[in-house]
Amino acid sequence: MKTLNRRETLKSLLLAPLAGGIIASTGCATSTGAAARMNWTALPDSYSYGRTAVEMQTDAELMQESYFREHELLTIAVLCDIILPSDHANGGALDAGLPDFVEFIVKDRTNFKLPIRGGIAWLDVYAIEHFGADFINITEAQRLTVCDRIAYPDVTDAQLQAGISFFALMRNLTLTGYYTTAAGFKDLGYQGNTPNVWDGVPAAVLQRHGVAYEAEWLAKCVDQSRRDIPAQWDDDMKLIS
């Protein structure tokens, strides 16, 4: 099985049947998927964020490790794209490099390896049984039909439970991978992780939620206009500066 080259800025895998795909031996003679090719933004090969030598070594080894087959990575890409599609102003899962993130996190958190591999195999068996081809080689409409059946935990059909668990895991990883990128921050509207001066909840927000600061409490709080004046106390422990 071909291993994947990590040295591209835009990953591109052909959404076409692989000869002798992992499960399907028949029924994948034609690629009927809407997209002929899966493209996604590549994530970096190395990171630098205050690591010890041991951590750098561990992460380098993880980056080198090849776990997923191309078919599996393609399936992951297709699922990520369904969960958070790119037809949105802030971009979708593929724009945020989700297949690369899922690949890394599954290698890093090894208890995900089997559920993801087995889940993909389950999905292919299900797709072949109901639509005659691997999940990535059935039509887009058929793929969404499959997802409609496994995307909700209130479905009680015993035959679908393994698929429901797998889809929930893929949804978790896709969302966490997306909302921990710059695009995700923008989509959420998160405004922190930057030096600032906290001076309480904005007045309009207090009003909207029907709460208020008590004057007695505010008297104990920092006067931010005096934050740079060195602290001094009197002998009774009262701050006087």
């Binding site: 906290w198 001076d199 309480g200 909840v201 927000v205 207090l206 939620h209 709460v211 600061y213 409490w217 505010l218 104990k220 709080c221 920092v222 006067d223 602290a231 701050l239």
Partner: peptide, 8 residues
């Protein structure tokens, strides 16, 4: 030192 104001 003075306390930070409570969050929502």
């Amino acid at each position: 030192l003075p306390a930070p104001k409570p969050r929502l």
